[in-house]
């Protein structure tokens, strides 16, 4: 759509600008402020320069949390994206099955995140949970409270349960936009199932898949509530991801300076990822 140049449009954006300034810019300025100062209490602040940033970037704790978070995002993406594609390809094409599938698959997406945590906390318990109890019955020594590996399995299982449907729904939306004629042409050419997927379905899903990958990466990168409810970051620090560590540092220990520096680094990474997302979106919009 060719848009007209009109700077008065700024007035229409003003309410949004004010709201977001209040809820984003001012708090972010506070964070920047804290990240370069030190305090000994009594509301007295001293200039600390880049001290906190240096401390953060050389601290094992930060890099460990970052590593765990990146690993979590990678595992989650590696499971959810292929699984989502397979399920989307096998969705019913028409009839009553479509709304039933859409509604039941979307249900986990709409559950409050801490309830998702509660559901899995209960589900995985070895004494009263279906999953934990069954695993124990078939002889697997499963205990997500004490065993780091089991905790990881539980947290990843929970995320797959929670968010795979997003990938399914996005891919499905891409698939239904393919005209029947494409399939008919493929049939006439005697294309194999794989060729249909590779040359017709995958190119059409390109855009939605990119959105799915980026959204899943961003959301798994800032995950807090679900693992916090299930494991509380434990056992030890095994499932302490960036957000959990940050809240622990800022609210729990009240180490404002390091926490602020960490927030800024965290935010810069998010900014970079958002930029990738935005570039992808605007490029596709331009093609459209």
């Amino acid at each position: 759509m060719n848009k007209t140049w009109n700077n008065k449009a700024w007035f229409m954006v003003l309410p949004v600008l004010l709201l977001v300034a209040l809820s984003a810019v001012i708090p972010l300025m506070t964070v920047v402020n804290y990240s370069v100062q030190d305090t000994f209490g009594n509301n007295q602040f001293f200039w600390a320069g880049t001290e906190w940033f240096q401390e953060m970037l050389t601290s094992d704790r930060f890099w460990a949390a970052m590593g765990r978070n990146l690993m979590f995002s990678a595992i989650v993406l590696a499971i959810e994206i292929p699984l989502g594609i397979v399920i989307a390809l096998n969705m019913p094409k028409s009839g009553w099955g479509v709304p039933v599938c859409l509604v039941s698959m979307a249900l986990p997406l709409l559950i409050p995140w801490n309830v998702v945590g509660t559901i899995w906390q209960v589900f995985g318990r070895v004494d009263i949970g279906l999953l934990g109890y069954s695993l124990r019955q078939i002889g697997i020594d499963y205990n997500y409270v004490n065993d780091p590996f089991d905790a990881w399995v539980t947290v990843i299982g929970m995320d797959v349960w929670h968010w795979t449907s997003l990938v399914v729904l996005l891919c499905y939306a891409g698939l239904v936009s393919i005209p029947d004629a494409y399939y008919q042409a493929a049939k006439i050419d005697g294309a194999s199932r794989w060729a249909v997927f590779r040359y017709i379905q995958l190119p059409k899903m390109n855009r939605v898949l990119l959105i799915a990958v980026l959204l899943r990466f961003m959301d798994s990168f800032m995950i807090y509530t679900e693992p916090f409810v299930v494991t509380g970051g434990g056992p030890g620090n095994a499932t302490t991801f960036l957000s959990i560590d940050l809240v622990k540092m800022a609210v729990g220990q009240f180490d404002i300076g390091p926490a602020a520096a960490m927030s800024i680094i965290y935010f810069l990474i998010i900014l970079l990822m958002s930029w990738v997302f935005y570039t992808v979106m605007t490029n596709y919009d331009a093609e459209r």
């Binding site: 949004v16 977001v20 809820s23 984003a24 001012i26 708090p27 972010l28 506070t30 964070v31 961003m218 990168f221 800032m222 807090y224 960036l242 957000s243 959990i244 940050l246 809240v247 800022a250 609210v251 404002i256 926490a259 927030s263 965290y266 935010f267 998010i270 900014l271 990822m273 958002s274 930029w275 997302f277 935005y278």
Partner: peptide, 21 residues
């Protein structure tokens, strides 16, 4: 673009400043 970055921002970053604000 700036709006998008706010949608993507982790709430954990904002918890403490919000509380003080």
């Amino acid at each position: 673009f700036w709006l998008l970055t706010n949608r993507m921002a982790p709430p954990a970053v904002f918890a403490l400043p919000f509380f003080q604000l």
